[in-house]
């Protein structure tokens, strides 16, 4: 079973010519079959954690380790991380003009699986996955993320997750900007993938709303670049009632 281990991760980002530390010692273990929610206020470093795992060049790892089944993830290029089984559903997916969704998906699936899927099987597979996310088949002919609504972008991210079958899926604020119907559809997609037991899910969110549809096994409260509290699903209920204030104040006085 796949295991992502993050140990004492320190990450800086360059702002105004000077490095600023965003992650200040993150420890986290995500195993296949588990769903973890990382919750925290704006600016706490949640998204930095997501992008650092995926290898975005903007972030510099200054200390700590990230391993997937013992392999050094930090030593891998961005594409190698994806091929090793790490998937990041982005909060702001990028437009790629002139590249159709179907071409993009097939190129991606070919890279991840190591061979091109047979065309007939592939079309069926793509249609089935799109249907499950209530996506019109015409969607496949549109350019990647170009002119997509917020909901369409997030469905498209989850579609990729379903087709790429990662070992570890990091969902960065996938719930933000979604209306309730889109949130349900997207959550069902995440739950479908989680139900296989073959993927570890790291759900990064600001709001507790999505946790009504995706039940986490573990909840981590993220403040000021590190995890400050951990618990089960009940911790999310407590956060919904009380907010982050108590943790933010505690971190500030620490």
């Amino acid at each position: 079973m796949a295991t992502l281990e993050i140990r004492d991760l320190h990450v800086t980002v360059e702002t105004d010519g000077a490095p600023r530390e965003i992650l200040r010692g993150v420890d986290l273990t995500v195993r296949a079959g588990e769903t973890h929610a990382i919750m925290g206020p704006n600016g706490s470093g949640k998204s930095t954690l997501a992008y650092s795992i995926a290898g975005h060049p903007k972030y510099t790892v200054t200390g700590g380790t990230v391993t997937l089944d013992g392999e050094d993830v930090l030593a891998m290029s961005v594409d190698a991380r994806a091929r090793a089984g790490i998937f990041l559903a982005m909060q702001y997916p990028v437009e790629v003009p002139g590249v159709s969704v179907s071409n993009f998906l097939r190129t991606s699936v070919t890279a991840i699986r190591g061979e091109a899927p047979k065309l007939r099987n592939w079309i069926k597979e793509m249609r089935t996955a799109m249907d499950a996310l209530s996506m019109d088949p015409a969607f496949a002919e549109r350019n990647v993320n170009e002119g997509f609504s917020g909901g369409e972008k997030k469905r498209h991210e989850i579609l990729q997750m379903e087709l790429l079958r990662p070992k570890i899926a990091v969902l960065d604020e996938t719930d933000s900007g979604l209306d309730i119907d889109a949130l349900k559809v997207v959550s069902e997609g995440v739950n479908r993938v989680a139900a296989t037991g073959e993927v570890g899910t790291l759900l990064i969110t600001h709001y507790t709303r999505i946790l009504r549809y995706i039940r986490p096994d573990f909840v981590h409260v993220f403040v000021d670049g590190r995890i400050v509290a951990e618990g089960g699903a009940e911790l999310a209920d407590q956060l919904e009632a009380q907010g982050y204030d108590v943790y933010v104040k505690a971190a500030a006085s620490a």
Binding site: D79, A82, R83, S108, L164
Partner: peptide, 10 residues
């Protein structure tokens, strides 16, 4: 970055 994060080589 977006395309590479989907396994596609540079």
């Amino acid at each position: 970055f977006y395309l590479m994060s989907r396994g596609i080589p540079a």
